[in-house]
Amino acid sequence: MQWTVILKKELTENWRNFKWLWVPIVFILISIMDLISTYYMPIIIESAGGLPDGTVIDIPMPSPSEAMLMSFSQLNMIGILILTVISMGTISGEIKSGVYELILAKPVKYTNYVTGKFFSYWLLMMVSLLLGLLASWYYTNLLFGELALSQMFIAALFYACWLTLVIAIVILYNTWFKSPGLIAFLSIITVIILTVMTNIFGHVLGWSPAKITEYISIYLHTGDLDIEIWFSAIVALLLSLACILFAIVSLRNRAID
C-alpha cells in the first residue's frame, strides 16, 4: 500500500539521521532534569559553600504529583521546540530540494503523502514522550514518593493530544511556506498565541487544547478526570484533523515553481 511505503521511507529517514536516537534521549533528559536538580539542591548549595554558618536551609521537597508536573512543564517548552524543529522541513524541504517533483510525478495521493509524514512524526513524538515520562515517573517514585503508573499513563495520553496538534500545525505550515526556519518560527508563535489567549480568556476557553496541561495538573493532584479535559483533548484532536485536511488541500492546490 502506498501509505505504508511512504511511512516506511519516513521512518527509515529519521532512523538514518538519528532522530530516533536523539529525540527520545533528549525527551528523557528534559523530563528528569528538574527532578534531579531539585532533589539534590541542598547538597549542591552545601558543596558550593556560599552560605554562612548557622543558615538553615529548608527547601520543601515537592510532592510526587508536583514532581511529575515539573517534567510536563519542561516538555511543554523544550519538548514542543524540539518537535517543531525536527519536523519543520519534512514537506517544505522536499519541495525546496526538488525531490518532491520526482515523488509527485508518480501517482502519489496527496492524502497518503501528508498523513504518512504526519504519522511518522506522531510515532516519534509518542515514543519519545512515553519514554521521557516513564523516566520521570521512575525518578519521582525513587526520590519523591509514590505515584501510580496508570496515572502517569493517562496524563501522558491526554498530553499527547496537545502535542499531536503541535505536529499537525507544523505540517500545515509545511504546505504553505518553503523556508523551514519560517515554519518553525510560525509554529512556535502559533502555540504561544494559543497559550496566551487561553490564559487571558481562560474562563470562556475551557475547552482550549492549551488548557490540557492545566487539567493534567489537577488530575495529578486530585486523581479526578474533569469533563473539561476530555473536551480539550477532543478539540485538540479535531483541530489536528482540520490542520491535516487543510494541509492536504493546500498541497494539492500549490503551484510548484
Binding site: 529517514e13 526538488g98 520526482l102 510525478a105
Partner: peptide, 9 residues
Amino acid sequence: YLPQHPSFY
C-alpha cells in the same frame, strides 16, 4: 518524468 535538475534523498 525526469525534471531538469533531479534531486534525491
